[in-house]
Amino acid sequence: MNDPVLRLSGIGKSYNPGQPNEVNVLRGIDLTVAAGEVVALVAPSGAGKSTLLHIAGLLDTPDTGTVEIGGTDMTGQSDRKRTGVRRRDVGFIYQFHHLLPEFSALENIVLPQLANGVSQSEAQTRALSLLDEVGIGHRADHRPAALSGGEQQRVAFCRALANAPRLLLADEPTGNLDPTTSDQVFAALMTLVRGTGLSAVIATHNLELAARMDRQIRLEAGQLVAL
C-alpha cells in the first residue's frame, strides 16, 4: 500500500501560550490524504484553517504532533530540508492571486520552474500547456493588471502546479470572485487537479463547491469532524 501524500498526527497549535489571552487554534488534529484524493476543508473565518494549511505545507510548525509528506516525517527537519520538500512537493493557492505584476501570465508560471532548475524552453512549454488547460492560453502574454479576476486566479492555479507537486493546498481559492466566475474558475481548478492526479486540500466556506470534492471535513473548535 502506498504511503499517503499527507498525514497529520496530533497537530496542536496555540498563540500566546501561557498568557491570559492564549488561543488554542488547533487541538489534536489528525488527517490523512491519499494519493489523488481531493479533500474539502470547510471552516468559517477565524477557525484556524489557514494555520492548518500552513502547517500542512511546512510554512509553519505545530506545537505538538507530526507532519508527514510522502511518508517522510518532517518534524524537526532543518529549514533547508523543509524548504526543499515544500518547493518540490507542495503547491499553494491563496484567495488573492499574488502574481508578480511586472511579469506576464506566462512568465509568472515559468519563473518558479526556473528556480527549480528547469530549462527555459521546457518551462515555457509546460506553462503554455497549463494555460491552455484552463482556457486562457491566448492570454499568456498579458500582465496581471490586464487580466480579469477569474483569469488572474487561473494563472495562480497554473503557477501552483508548475513544478508538478504531489500536494496542492488552497485557501479559499475562489473567495474573491462572484458566484458565476467562482463556479467557472473552480471547475478549471478541478480539471487541473484531476488531470494531474495530485492530492489536494481545498479550504472553502462554499458547501456547493465542497460537495464536488471526494471528502468533506469541517474545522470546529480546533478539531476536525467529517461532514
Rank of each mutant, 00 (worst) to 15 (best):
G48Q: 11
G84V: 00
S104V: 08
A146N: 10
I11H: 04
V90N: 06
T64Q: 15
Y15R: 07
E22H: 06
Q216Y: 01
G57R: 03
D141H: 14
K13M: 12
L99Y: 11
Q216C: 09
G57Q: 03
M213A: 05
V110H: 03
E122Y: 00
L8D: 07
L169S: 03
F157E: 03
A123G: 10
R154V: 02
T32P: 01
D73Y: 05
T125Q: 15
V155Y: 03
L192M: 03
D30Q: 02
P4N: 12
T75N: 14
G91F: 04
T64R: 15
Q113M: 15
V38A: 15
L168V: 14
D171K: 02
M190N: 08
L224M: 08
I109Q: 03
A43N: 08
G137S: 03
L128W: 08
S104G: 01
E220S: 10
G10V: 07
T83H: 01
E37C: 04
F157L: 13
E68D: 01
P165D: 11
I217G: 02
G57A: 06
S148E: 09
D73M: 07
R166K: 15
L189I: 12
S50F: 05
L227P: 07
Q153D: 02
L128D: 12
A34F: 09
E102F: 12
A203S: 15
G150N: 07
Q19T: 12
D183G: 03
A162V: 05
I69S: 06
I136S: 11
Q153V: 06
R218S: 11
I202P: 02
D73G: 06
T196Y: 12
F96V: 00
L26W: 06
D73L: 10
Q120G: 00
G91V: 01
C158A: 14
L147T: 04
S182T: 02
M213D: 06
Q184V: 14
G137T: 09
T61I: 02
T191N: 15
I29Q: 07
G18A: 13
L8I: 05
E68C: 10
N108Y: 11
Q152P: 04
R87G: 01
Q77F: 00
T180N: 12
T204R: 11
Q124D: 07
G48D: 13
E172L: 02
R159Y: 04
L8A: 06
H142I: 00
L52Y: 03
N108A: 06
E220H: 13
P44K: 06
D30S: 02
S104K: 08
L53K: 13
V90S: 03
P179M: 03
R215Q: 12
